[in-house]
Structures are given as C-alpha cells and as structure tokens.
Write a protein that binds this DNA or RNA. Sequence first.
DNA 1: TGTTAGCTTGACACTGTGTCAAGCGGGTGC
DNA 2: GCACCCGCTTGACACAGTGTCAAGCTAACA
Lengths: 199, 199
Amino acid sequence: MSSNNLETRNRILNAALTLLEASRGKGVRMIDIAKRAGITRQALYLHFRTRAELLIATTYYLDEVKGVEERLIPSRAARSGIERLDAFIEAWGSYIPEIYVIAEALLAMKDTDEAAAKAWDDRMRDMRQGCEAAIRALNSDNMLSPAYPPAQATDVLWTMLSVRNWEQLTIECGWPQERYIETLKSLARRIFVAERTSN
Amino acid sequence: MSSNNLETRNRILNAALTLLEASRGKGVRMIDIAKRAGITRQALYLHFRTRAELLIATTYYLDEVKGVEERLIPSRAARSGIERLDAFIEAWGSYIPEIYVIAEALLAMKDTDEAAAKAWDDRMRDMRQGCEAAIRALNSDNMLSPAYPPAQATDVLWTMLSVRNWEQLTIECGWPQERYIETLKSLARRIFVAERTSN
DNA sequence: TGTTAGCTTGACACTGTGTCAAGCGGGTGC
DNA sequence: GCACCCGCTTGACACAGTGTCAAGCTAACA
C-alpha cells in the first residue's frame, strides 16, 4: 500500500536526519539509517536508489520541516535596502545552524557524487538570489557603494554568507551565534553601504 | 640503501603531486600513485603507513617546492600596518592557487581522517599568525577600526582569506585571480582601516 | 661468497555500497 | 475462502579501495 510506503519513507528520512545531527554529518552508514528506521539495509534501496539520493531527499525534507520560505518573508517585506540586507542576513544566518549538519554531509559527497553536487549547488543558487535581491534593493536606494559593481557585490555577499564561513567563525573561532549575526550585518554595511553613517 | 629509499620517496611525492594536480584532487588512488612512481601499490606502504600520511607528506613537500616562507618576507618587511596587510593578502592570495588542489585533497580527508584534519588545522593556524600580525601592525599604527577588537578582526581576516572563499570567488564566480587579490585588499581596507581615506 | 635493503608477487581481510532471488505475511479483490 | 500482490526480510554475492602478510628476487656491499 502506498500510504504504508510513504510512512516508511518518512521514517527513513527522520532516521537519517537524527543520525546526521547526532554524528555531525560524518560516518553515517546506510545500515545505521536502516536500523534506526526499523527496517533492513536492503529495504532502503526500495525507497532510494543510492545513498546520495537519500541524503538529497533528506535535505528537502529538512527544508520542509524547518520552513525556509517563511523565514525569508521579513526580508522581502523590508522597505529600505539596508533593512532588506539586515533582514536577509538575519534570516539566512539563523537558518545555517539548523541545516549545518546536513549541509556537511551533502558537501562531503560533493566531490564524489554528481547528484549531491547538483543538489548543493541548486541550494546555494537559491541563496544567492537573496543576496542579489538585497544588493539590488540597496542599489535602488542609491545606497550601494560605488566601490563594487552590483554583480561583484553579490558575489562578495554570497561568499561572506557561506556555510563554511559560518562554520569557521562559530565553530573554529568559537563565536556565539548572535555575534556572528551582528558582525556579519556590520561587515555588510561597512562593505556595501555608501557614505557610511554608522559602523 | 637509505639514499635509494629517499629517492623513491621523492618519486612517490612527485607522483602524488602530479596526479592530484591533474585530477583536481579527487579520485586519486594509491595504485595510481604507485604506478606513476614506477613501483607497486604495496611498496607505497614501505614509505607511508596510510594514504592520509602520504597526502600530508605531499603537502609539506609542496611547501618545500613552492617556498611559502620566502613569499612572506615582503609582508614582514612592510613598514606601515596598511602596507603589511596588503602585502600579506598579496602573498597568501597568490599562494592559494598553487596549493589549491592539494588543499582540496586534504580537506576531503578532514572528515574521515584524524591526522589529515590535524595537518590541515596546523596549516591554517600558521596562516592565522600572518593575519594576526597584520592586524597587530594596523593596531600599532592606530589605524585599526574601533568597530572590531583585534582578536575578532583577526578572526574575520582569517575567514575572508580562506581557501574556500578563494575557491568560491575564482572558480564558482569566475573571477580572475587579479580581481580576487585586488578586491580582497580593498575589502580588508574597508573593513579594518579606521577613518577611510581610500576605498 | 654471504648478507641485506628495497622492491615484487600473489595472496587475503575488511568495510561499505549496491544487487539479486527467493520467501513470507497481511491486507485486498473476487 | 482463495488467490494475489505489496512491502518487507533473509541470505547471498559483486565490486572497489585500503591495508596486511609471507615468500621470493636482485643488486650492492662487506
């Protein structure tokens, strides 16, 4: 029965999520996921063709669970460019820690698996849209620093907000999450906003 | 004979280097390296205990070949803080493309191999010293922006100059190397230098 | 001439992914 | 009540890549 099928599928995705979160994304085997989901390893392949496919499905499942879309509403509603930039950094920056472990797993597969690479790149391209919109909003307000053309400014913002940079600052350097958010907002203003009036 | 031993060792390291560079760091097997070095796969293990150990040795070998130390001389000789910041970004930024493929290979192992992780972290810690010195020089000149305490400024500079960020800007965004260097210099000035007089 | 260092040859173990065939049990249709 | 099928289990096996081991070869050196 297809409802039963879907139920198992969700159990698998939940299992994958839990295990990835528990083990910081590394060393989660198919057999571990299967056991946690209460089925055999082989049965996993009745739902997902490969490990990569399972992980990709897990990230989409995660998005669904965490609700990415809703989080971006405030940034879209922003009236000024600066406000939009701030709201976007706030929204994305707060989202990173929630997807971090899964992102790690996907990033680790990027080298070996074509599909995983594409899934990650798609996801990053989506995020880039937000960066572009924020820069464009700033530009419309005539508040974008003339130092960088919009396209390059987008590249820079996109790079600044990468998961890897979040990882380095919070995990490696030990920054608390709020400092990460505040510093990135401050940096973005310093870099992108013309005629600085605040830091 | 130990001289023969060393000769083979260098042949292995050269082989590893060549292959890693050719294949962008991924999918290089022990057998490939062995063949290229003109020995058997098993003989590799007479020189390196594991694949990780070989890769780590390869990175040190690379440093030797490329001469990291000499490149940093100009930045140490700089008279002003700003000059030092510029020189450091120039030196490190120019070095990244040369070590990039090996860095990739090492980064890929970071998740699974303890020793590889340590080797990479050590390397990054070295680089961080340069960042710290540049920030300190700026601070001594009273040119460090009050917006960030020196420790945090170091964290930010260190993160900005990561290999991943270089990868994203040059490879993903398609920036030419000179633009990368110039933009990073410009960004660093904008962020760290107080009372901006230039962009 | 005998010894030894450095390599080869040809095994084998192990891990993890992915595949296959046969079987089983419970619900559904007739 | 019977047959059927779906979703899963069981127990194989293939395959790639790393790492290990024992025995043998060969050139150089004492």
